[in-house]
């Protein structure tokens, strides 16, 4: 049963998610703007860490920042409904997609996951 308090809490979560989503989009756009660093265009110096020209160091920083923005995005904006598919969402049938391979069954998945796990551990 949906109570008033649970409704309020879900509305608050949704509002927070929207804010973070906007923030992530803003950060990606900011990265795209910062990427076009006309201000370092003809600068050979300073040498960051004593060896990296500033133009290269700036872009290495952009790559690091892209990873960080990715971290924020997957931590706060991950589309949760996609993960629901993991738990055995609606199964496709051959009538649904004639000619396509049927999706892997739960039986298929389990041993494969073990195989992968073994491989990754090694």
């Amino acid at each position: 049963m949906i109570t008033q308090s649970s409704f309020k809490s879900s509305a608050a979560t949704e509002s927070r998610q929207t804010t973070v989503r906007t923030l992530v989009i803003g950060l990606i756009l900011l990265l795209a703007v910062l990427h076009h660093d006309w201000w370092w265009w003809d600068a050979k110096e300073p040498l960051v860490l004593g060896f990296m020209p500033i133009g290269l160091a700036w872009h290495a920083g952009i790559s690091l920042a892209a990873g960080l923005v990715g971290l924020v995005a997957v931590s706060f904006c991950w589309p949760a409904h996609l993960d629901e598919e993991d738990g055995g969402g609606e199964s496709a049938s051959t009538e649904d997609n004639p000619g396509e391979a049927a999706p892997a069954s739960a039986e298929d998945d389990a041993p494969a996951a073990t195989d992968t796990g073994k491989e990754e551990a090694s």
Binding site: A104, D108, D109, A112, T116, G117, E120
Partner: peptide, 16 residues
Amino acid sequence: SSSDFFLASRGIGPFM
């Protein structure tokens, strides 16, 4: 199974 041959039974972990 063709799913295993073409898609590794959809069983690949995050690192791989």
